[in-house]
């Protein structure tokens, strides 16, 4: 059994207690809701896109430390990135937390690597990916709320 600190790293706890980019964005072109019915976590992601880049991003909602910190770190990561770059982050992040790929420290996930321990907790993978799935839906303008179930 892995050590607690593998999952609840300081960076995660910090982003849970002091989430970055939390709040609403008015008149955004991209917005989506996501929920994890199992935990009762829910998140709304607001994105402003300009010239194919994430100009501004916020999230609202409530959830566990893993889902909140993931949303917070996600907003920091994708802000200013092109849409293709954002999607590439999602793919890599997803592979890392589902354990389908060993993280290679050079592959540019940066701070997001604090979530690498999640792959040992299969029931928590949904918490870590909720915000990302929701961002994806927002960028694709999907109307249906995202559900991890």
């Amino acid at each position: 059994m892995s050590d607690l600190s593998d999952l609840y790293q300081d960076v995660i706890l910090d982003h849970y207690k002091r989430p970055r980019n939390r709040g609403h964005l008015d008149d955004t072109d991209h917005q989506a809701d996501g929920q994890n019915p199992l935990c009762g976590d829910h998140v709304t992601v607001f994105v402003k896109v300009k010239d194919d880049r994430v100009e501004e991003i916020r999230f609202a909602g409530s959830g566990c430390a893993i889902s909140t910190a993931s949303a917070s770190l996600m907003t920091e990561t994708v802000k200013g990135k092109t849409l293709d770059e954002a999607k590439a982050f999602f793919r890599k992040f997803h592979d890392m937390v589902t354990g389908s790929q060993e993280v290679d420290h050079g592959d540019g996930l940066g701070k997001l690597e604090v979530f690498s321990g999640v792959c040992q907790y299969p029931v928590r993978v949904k918490c870590a990916t909720l915000a990302w799935h929701t961002l994806d839906a927002a960028l694709e303008n999907r109307e249906e709320p995202v559900s991890t179930e």
Partner: peptide, 13 residues
């Protein structure tokens, strides 16, 4: 200040 799922994970450990 603690979400139930985080508590349950830490208790499980």
């Amino acid at each position: 200040g603690v979400h139930p799922h985080d508590a349950a994970t830490i208790l499980d450990q």
